[in-house]
Amino acid sequence: MKAFLAKEGLIPLLEALSQQMEIIAPLATESCAVFSSWRGQIMDLQNNPLAPPTEFLLPHREILFRYVQESGRYTFKEEEIPPRLLFAIRPCDLHAIALLDKIFGSQPIDQAYFRRRRATALVVLNCTTWGRECFCASLGAGPEARDPCDLQLTDIGDGYLCQAETPAGILILKAASDLLQPAKLEHDQEKARLLQMARETMPRDGSCQQMRQAMKRADWEDLGRECLGCGGCSLVCPVCHCFNIIDSGIPDGERLRCRDSCLLSGFSRLAGGANPRRTSGQRLKHWYQDKFEDIPKITGLPGCVGCGRCHLVCPAPINRADLKVESREAKG
């Protein structure tokens, strides 16, 4: 189903939807855009938030189940997951969700992830402009959504071209059917023109092939000396999904899943103290290798979506250009 929604129709549409479910949208704050619960606040639909929307599918801390002890035996209870809508996520992050679906959907299926995932509707906003670190076009992750979502929006100037792709997407549009106008051929043409322009002007380095070449020549131990080991890159990466499982509470309590990072020094440490990835350089190499070699082997897709968040957040700073020996020398 295709329709045109004038810009002034957007807020009434969200208001109607918020009666049915929680809406997570990119909110404008004093410093940057942040995905958070929308209750009429001003949104930032220009910038993709630094913290990715995948944190609503794999939260920094979530309860896997509660355990309650009674005369020595335990009973377990899982949390209720209320329905939610992720609004105005970008094609790169949608692509990351498609990757997470593959990773968590491989046998044995991670039901804890899919309980949340199934309760979440996805509305994508295609990118007619791009941010300063974006390179999604090199990795086939943008600027246009190509992965399954419920509803796709494209800002074509005075309004949005809306394309519902699932029954859930059609229901989202029908929440405010009186605001919709029929989509016209010009709308499609304008969408195609704007996305083509974004695709052509975006930086083109950082493809899987280019990165693999650069990784072969990279001096990992040298890069490792610059890396502060803070794990920031992996916390803002929409594809990163390392986690830890911990308990909280005796005798009753919760088993929690908490996000973790393979860049932290203790991540792979064994019971006896041995550590297969002992140095910072080894961990940095593993991170890049996972994205550009291992995830492609497992899922058939690059494990990087070109959102550029890791570059924005790194305090060292290390970015993909630093992997290339030539450019490091040029940098002096």
Partner: peptide, 19 residues
């Protein structure tokens, strides 16, 4: 092989050795 594991089901990445 001995590796650190948290989930046991191939998701948490603690025990990853390449792919």
């Amino acid at each position: 092989m001995e590796r650190h594991m948290k989930c046991g089901v191939g998701k948490c990445e603690h025990c990853a050795i390449g792919p």
